[in-house]
């Protein structure tokens, strides 16, 4: 691995840019993501920036139960994130559907069957510390080239 490659992989850990995606959430998890930017948690200390567009993002945070209507949106947004990328599932809903599990509008599957998820952050909603920890782990995976999309693209 050359010096420049090493520098780039360290930079991936030190500068993870985030895009949020609400996949049918009750908004509880999204409200818990916002305090990460506040003085108490100040996620900028580890280089995180929140961006509105998936084109600038390295990590997408997907929250919420997966509904029939958001499935295609999740696929579209995931495809727009430039490689290398990581996915962090926020809350219990992407994994199991949580309390909405048997609703007719909710897909009965976990997020894993739609896009490859790298880090699961459990909780309903998870605390901001846990969300930051999830982002940190995803960034570490990006550094070592171990996110699922990176492994898939290996020659």
């Amino acid at each position: 691995m050359s010096f420049i490659d090493r520098l780039i992989s360290i930079s991936r850990r030190r500068s993870p840019w985030i895009c949020r995606l609400n996949g049918g959430s009750c908004n509880g998890c999204d409200i818990e993501i916002t305090p990460c930017l506040s003085p108490r948690y100040d996620v900028e200390q580890i280089g995180v920036e929140f961006h509105g567009t998936p084109k600038h993002a390295d990590i997408i945070l997907i929250s919420g139960t997966l509904t029939v209507r958001t499935r295609q949106a999740i696929l579209d947004v995931y495809a727009q994130v430039p490689n290398p990328k990581a996915v962090v599932a926020i809350g219990s809903c992407p994994a199991s559907g949580n309390v909405f599990a048997d609703s007719p509008f909710v897909l009965g599957t976990s997020l894993d069957t739609i896009v490859p998820v790298d880090v699961w952050v459990p909780g309903c909603p998870p605390r901001p510390q846990l969300i930051i920890e999830g982002i940190r782990r995803a960034a570490a995976l990006l550094e070592s080239g171990a996110t699922k999309s990176q492994i898939e693209r290996r020659p």
Partner: peptide
């Protein structure tokens, strides 16, 4: 807030080069 570390803009640039 505490704010970003000193080398943050450099890391941002290097990461974008590798994307």
């Amino acid at each position: 807030r505490r704010g970003p570390p000193f080398f943050q803009p450099f890391f941002d640039f290097m990461k974008l080069l590798g994307k």
